[in-house]
Design a protein around this nucleic acid. Structure first.
Length: 488
RNA sequence: GGCGUGUUCGUCUAGUGGUCUAGGACGCUGGCCUCUCACGCCGGUAACAUGGGUUCGAGUCCCAUACACGCUACCA
């Protein structure tokens, strides 16, 4: 069966060395979208072949962040399929078996060159500005017998691929077309390291084949080494997968995205109050577009519209302003129950007791706050005064609204509200309108003073709705208490 | 240094030889709505890196140049 009509199987293959940054997350998203769009399989493979950089905490964070984003893998750690194990460190026997094939065929060889020699070569090449770089193939023609004898005697060796010295190696990238490299510029890359672990190049090729990967979607920093991978597939007699190299995500001002320049990891954005949906949506649109004007999209909607051809080849900048806007959009579309939970939990942390309020009350608060929140983390503080009287009042608003004459205004508002037997938005508004006419004070003046008294803030939801929800008794009490702070 | 990849408003993008005096979104900005703050709505701002070709015609194809990024590890 040819690769093009094999079932789609793609993978996200991170290395557990640090936090999951947004670039990695986007790679995972595209793999996930593609798998879902093609009714294929999305699997997770952990590339933990670098024992020095391995980090257990990073691994746990990775699982957590992927799950938080909703990118549940069909196969991988925790849900093994038939081609496991899914940790490369547990596949050492497989690599040993496969490398033997290459050794037997004469396509790979042992190399005993030590670090020092290699460094000297590199240094000499740098100084002479030699066009050809890399290993000088010193051990290429050592006989297998001699080499194995030396190893038996205790010498350590790496195993390298015997790269053809002439010719051209090419492949077709889904979003960039044909890419060619001169073989003479490639060096004999290491396949098995001195510690017996495979290099990325070897492990990923062996695994992508054995795990029946149909498409490799990965960062474009791999373009330069893809010819080496093709050569490996050729040596094995395997058909390479289809390659699709994704552009990098840069920081807003250009350059690499890093913690120093602000949030860069999935965890950072979660802590900042972003919805996972927002991050998925935004990251997906960084380099991909559905082809029409849609921007705020749901997961399934994006999956339905997804195609590899619509991914842009150019590097993109991460614009947090737009992310913020998009989060506001998704919060507006979010489920009220979810938002209510965010508020209740946040209020708990602020030591504000919500136990005497029922679910409907909370949901009404959510309804009023929803269009005003840009971050989940905004919600609890925005909601606080619906549950407890304010103890602090915005200083700027005090100057503006509690100046001369404000106390009598507050009193007149209380008097106007007092007689209302049915305390709802409509009757409250009527009372304010009537008071405005009879007193000659503008509505803004009236509202400003008591809004601050009741909420502690200068802005917020419409006053009538807000008063209705907080209730007549609380409203009147709060105004009366605040009057002491107002000028006559 | 070599090799590779890329280049449309400040940013994300649409655009696959004529419909592009280049469309949408964020941002910024003017206004509307309005009890405030948001939301929403209406308008404005601003781009085909440069130079050569190919073609009747180029943002779209080709070649240079410039710039950016990547690779050039027994890291991924």
């Amino acid at each position: 069966m040819s690769i093009s009509n094999r079932p789609v199987r793609v993978r996200f293959a991170p290395s557990p060395t640090g936090y999951l940054h947004v670039g990695g997350a986007r790679t995972a998203i595209y793999n996930y979208f593609f798998a879902k769009a093609m009714k294929g399989t999305f699997y997770l493979r952990v590339e933990d072949t670098d024992r020095k950089r391995y980090n257990e905490e990073a691994l746990q964070d990775l699982f957590r962040d992927l799950k938080w984003l909703g990118l549940q893998w069909d196969e991988g750690p925790g849900c093994e399929g038939s081609v496991g194990p899914y940790f490369q460190s547990e596949r050492l026997g497989i690599y040993a078996r496969e490398i033997k094939k290459l050794l037997d065929a004469g396509d790979a060889y042992y190399c005993f060159c030590n670090e020092e020699r290699l460094q000297e070569i590199r240094l000499a090449q740098e100084q002479s500005n030699a066009p050809v770089t890399g290993y000088d193939r010193h051990c290429r023609n050592l006989s297998r017998e001699d080499a194995e004898a030396r190893i038996a005697a205790g010498e350590k060796a790496v195993i390298r691929l015997k790269v053809p010295e002439t010719g051209i190696t090419a492949f077709d990238d889904v979003i960039r077309g044909r890419i060619e490299h001169q073989n003479e510029l490639l060096d004999d890359l290491v396949l098995i390291k001195r510690d017996q672990y495979p290099t990325y190049h070897f492990a990923s090729v062996v695994d992508d084949h054995l795990m029946e990967t149909s498409h490799v979607l990965r960062g474009d920093e791999w373009i330069s080494s893809t010819p080496k991978h093709i050569l490996l597939y050729n040596a094995f007699g395997w058909e390479p997968p289809i390659f699709c190299h994704l552009p990098v995500i840069l920081a807003a001002g250009g350059g690499k995205l890093s913690k120093r320049k602000g949030a860069a990891s999935v965890g950072d954005f979660r802590d900042l109050g972003y919805l996972p949906k927002t991050l998925i949506n935004f990251l997906a649109l960084l380099g991909w577009s559905p082809g029409d004007d849609r921007e705020v999209m749901g997961i399934q909607e994006m999956i339905d519209a997804f195609s590899l051809n619509r991914i842009n080849p150019k590097a993109v900048a991460f614009d947090e302003k737009k992310l913020q806007w998009m989060n506001g959009q998704h919060i507006q579309r979010a489920d009220n129950d979810l938002l209510a939970n965010v508020i209740r939990k946040g209020l708990d942390e602020l030591k504000i007791d919500t136990s005497s309020f029922n679910a409907d009350y909370l949901l009404s608060v959510v309804g009023l706050l929803k269009p005003r929140a840009h971050f989940l983390t905004d919600l609890p503080t925005m909601a606080a005064y619906f549950f407890t009287a304010p103890t602090e009042f915005d200083e700027k608003a005090k100057k503006k609204n509690w100046g001369e004459g404000s106390r009598s205004i507050a009193q007149s508002v209380r008097n106007a509200l007092e007689p209302l037997s049915d305390f709802n938005a409509a009757t409250i508004e009527q009372a304010f309108q009537a008071l405005s006419e009879s007193s000659g004070h503008g509505l803004g003046q009236l509202v400003g003073a008591v809004r601050l008294a009741v909420s502690g803030l200068s802005g917020g939801p419409g006053l009538w709705e807000m008063f209705e929800l907080i209730g007549k008794e609380n409203v009147l009490n709060r105004i009366q208490i605040a009057e002491a702070l107002m000028e006559k």
